[in-house]
Simulated scan of single mutants.
Amino acid sequence: MPKVIYETKDRIARITLNRPEAKNAIDQETHALLWQAWEDFAADDTLDVAILTGAGDAFCAGADLKTFIPPWMDATPVRVRENVATGLGGLTRGLHRTYKPVIAAVNGWALAGGLETALACDIRIASERAQFGSFEARRGYHHGDGGIVRLVNTCGTGVALEMLLTAEPIDAERALRANMVSRVVPHERLLEEAETTAQHILRNSQRAVRSAKETIMDVVGRPLDDQLRIEALNGYSSADPEETLALLQRFYDKSDAGRAGSTETPL
C-alpha cells in the first residue's frame, strides 16, 4: 500500500497518511508523496475541499526520527536556506498558499510535525481519542515548520509556551478549550463529521470561500488599517455578478441549500 492514499469523489480529495506501523511518521518518501498530493489537489478544477486524516490510531507522529531528522545534524547553511521553501509535507510551508479549504480529521496522536501539519489545515475536527503534543524539546530542537507561528496565532502565547517548554501533550478537550480544534466528536463519527463540514463548504460560492481564506491569511499580523484595506478590497471584488445574483435569487425564493427554519432544505 502507498504511504499516502489519495482519493477523490464528489469535489472532495481524501488524503490519508498510511504508515500506521510508524504512527504515520513522515519519512522522505511520505514527504514527497504529500507534496504531490497537495499539488494535485490545488491543480484539479474538479476538487474544492480536502480532508486529511491518518490510518490506524495516530494522525501523524511528525517527521520520522530515524530517517528524516539525522541528516539535518550536519546540514550546511545553504541547505537550511533552501529548506525554507519546502516545509514538512508541503502544506506547512511552500504549498500553504492553497486557497481551497483543508479539513484535518484528527483521529489520534498529532505530535511534533504532525501537530504542525494539523495546524496548517484550515479546520480541525478531533476524535475524542486525539492527543496533541510538541515533543521536539525532548529530542534537542523545536518546531521549524510553522508549529510555533500557528500555535501562537491560533491558541495564543500561553498555550504555545506551555506546550513547547514542557513538551507535554494535551487531550482533545483541552485542545477544544484552547481553540486548537473546532469540535470534538465520537471517534466512530470523525470522518462523517469531516464530510459534513466539507458539504457545508461545498454549498457555498467557492470564489467567496477562497477569497475569504486568502483574506484571513493576508491580514494576520498586519496593522489594523492594512487589515481593513485588504478585507475591503478582497470582499468587494470577490463576487462574480452572475453567480451572486443567482444565489441571491435562491435566497429570495427561500430555496437555498442548507436553509434552516420553516423553509428548511437539505444540503
Rank of each mutant, 00 (worst) to 15 (best):
D74Q: 13
E243S: 07
V106W: 05
Y6A: 05
Y99N: 05
I123G: 00
V219N: 00
P186R: 01
L52H: 08
R203D: 00
T215A: 04
H187R: 04
G54W: 02
R207C: 01
L111I: 14
A110N: 03
E168P: 00
D122P: 04
G144Q: 15
T46C: 03
A43F: 09
T8H: 05
V152Y: 03
K254M: 05
H96C: 06
V219W: 00
A198S: 05
G108K: 04
T265L: 05
T265Y: 03
P223L: 03
Y252H: 06
W109R: 10
Q36G: 12
Q206L: 00
A61T: 01
G89E: 06
V159F: 11
A118R: 06
L33W: 00
N24Y: 01
E21D: 12
F68R: 12
D57Y: 06
S238Q: 11
A42P: 01
H96V: 07
A194W: 08
N107H: 03
F135L: 11
T154S: 09
A61R: 11
P20K: 06
T8M: 10
F132V: 10
I26T: 12
K100W: 14
H200A: 10
L164V: 15
D145N: 15
A22P: 00
P266A: 04
A85E: 02
F132D: 02
D218Q: 03
N179K: 15
A208S: 00
G258E: 08
T46M: 06
A172H: 02
R124N: 05
G147N: 08
A178S: 12
L165M: 14
R174Y: 06
R14S: 10
W35Y: 13
I148Y: 14
K3I: 06
A198R: 03
G133D: 09
F59Y: 10
L228F: 07
